[in-house]
Design a protein around this nucleic acid. Sequence first.
DNA 1: GTGAAAGCGCTAACAC
DNA 2: GTGTTAGCGCTTTCAC
Lengths: 352, 352
Amino acid sequence: MAKVKLADVARAAEVHPGTASRALNPDQRGQVSAETVDRVVRAAQRLGYVPNAQARALRTARSHLVGIVVPDITNPLFPPIVRGAEHVLTSAGYTVLLTDTDNDRERERRQIESLLGRGVDGFIIATALWDDPLLTDLAEAGVPVVLTNRSASGGRWPYVAGDDQAGVRLSVQHLVGLGHRSIVHLAGPQNVSTGRDRARAFRAAAKEFGIGNGDARVSVCLSYSEAHGRTAMEKVLAARTPFTAVVAGNDLIALGALDALSDAGYACPEDVSVVGFNDMPFVGRLQPALTTVRLPLQRMGALAADLLMTELDAEGRQDAPTRTLLGVDLVVRGSTAAAPKRSRSRSRSRRT
Amino acid sequence: MAKVKLADVARAAEVHPGTASRALNPDQRGQVSAETVDRVVRAAQRLGYVPNAQARALRTARSHLVGIVVPDITNPLFPPIVRGAEHVLTSAGYTVLLTDTDNDRERERRQIESLLGRGVDGFIIATALWDDPLLTDLAEAGVPVVLTNRSASGGRWPYVAGDDQAGVRLSVQHLVGLGHRSIVHLAGPQNVSTGRDRARAFRAAAKEFGIGNGDARVSVCLSYSEAHGRTAMEKVLAARTPFTAVVAGNDLIALGALDALSDAGYACPEDVSVVGFNDMPFVGRLQPALTTVRLPLQRMGALAADLLMTELDAEGRQDAPTRTLLGVDLVVRGSTAAAPKRSRSRSRSRRT
DNA sequence: GTGAAAGCGCTAACAC
DNA sequence: GTGTTAGCGCTTTCAC
């Protein structure tokens, strides 16, 4: 843990720094005699040599730095993704620069610029908007980018995400199987792929399972949050059109919806069934335990990292971007149950 | 977003690179005529100049890189800390290198070494053991370190943590106020400060509030996890010594304990009250809603970052390390209630 | 197979 | 006030 440098190792091994460099570098080790390699490696070990990554990066124009951009690390969706990516990247000799944009576009732009100044080799981005000028700029600058969780319009970027369409389809199928015929979708924001895709999938699934247009309504939330989930649910309730089930854009929206339902005197699952998305930690311990769609988040991060590294090794000559959709599971718990005989009947017990 | 370099800016502004450097550097701007500064700054802006941090770091031996070391970013305790630190650091021009050690000491050592090779200026460490050779090595190497969440023996490192002692005291006081006279502490691991300090605080508080030694037992969990919380609780139950309340080392332990209690036929809070620690997201929505101690985690991270930056600016000449204990609140919810008349009576309703 | 030398982009000591 | 120069630690041509 000191600042021994290559020259020190070279001196100790009685070779030229250039030779020491070659001996220590796997790719060029072939150019050096086995005996010398051995001497150099020993010396490095003995002195506790740690190469100076800054200098190497300056010279090779490859930093082995990867920026991971998330909107809010305290949202439980992101830590597993970051963790998955981080493990893969550090195992491969990369270092992770994490940045939390706080859902602020200006901030995000600044951070990304700053990371570019740091010489990052590429980005894993979990904040993509559906139409995102920032991504376009990055692409034009030739910066390797992999999107995760969300995709973006144009099909220009490689990404790894959950199969939103399948998740929503499973949810609707499950509800229909329980006898629900009138279902509301509280959609996430429509400027991100997950919000759009899940809403689209909801409409498609409703059609597939024979639910009429009027019975498959969509109400859009302004953000993936409990607050906006609650608001959207309240608006639906105010409209007084009957429904017996809710497919929420994600778990936070589901929690907000649950609050609104409970305030309005509806019991879940007796009066209304609710399905979430993401299977956040502990939603299985809530009352009622939330039925939700589970995504392999950590694997998502890991695959995004793999994809990025592949792209980095490809050095420019790139094929069409790889897009990976990860399989999802419906985790059935207590928040979904058979449809009540008469829809929209308020539970007695909740009104005491 | 290109690779314009200082030389390009200098040429555009018709000055020498050295002058351009001075004009762009706030500290040395005084040495340059206002008119020149203006020309250079304009040129930089126009060309979209982003300084190469690697080169600067190589030259100045200051990278403005900070390593944040956490055991497991998916543990909800850490994201707010990271977020708080990240915001403060990026605002000050630092970049965060995040590393997740997966609770693996060997891995941690390797990561830290690798970050050192990256030239990080210092570390914010949330993984400190009470006796931690890694920290000692870092100190000997003269690497600035701030501990957060946990402290370490020796009083050698600055840290920012929650006031564990006060938190536990509040918990015990609350329980005693509810009539509990026989309380068990399910302590966290004793090789980390939080585990030790909370256990010590528990004994002290019990004494303060007049609970006898035999009625204030401590059972140690091997880790801060639901699984070990459950195991520890089961062991206490197997011992068949009466108790009416549990002070858990943290929320995860509390959840595990709740499971064990429920399996054994005890109802919470009717038969046994349970208090957690940390106020993880959504524990207020569980059934029963968990009474727990809330820490200002984000502020903790922010202060740790401030502390580290102060240390970095101090360049060696350091006073005694600053140690900050953040105030905590007891959040009273449904998992604590008045002590039952007869302790250890199993709830009828739970045994059906 | 190894040594010599140049240079990645920047800043700081030294001239003038 | 500005130009000149050297060098941070490393890799990589180019010699031999």
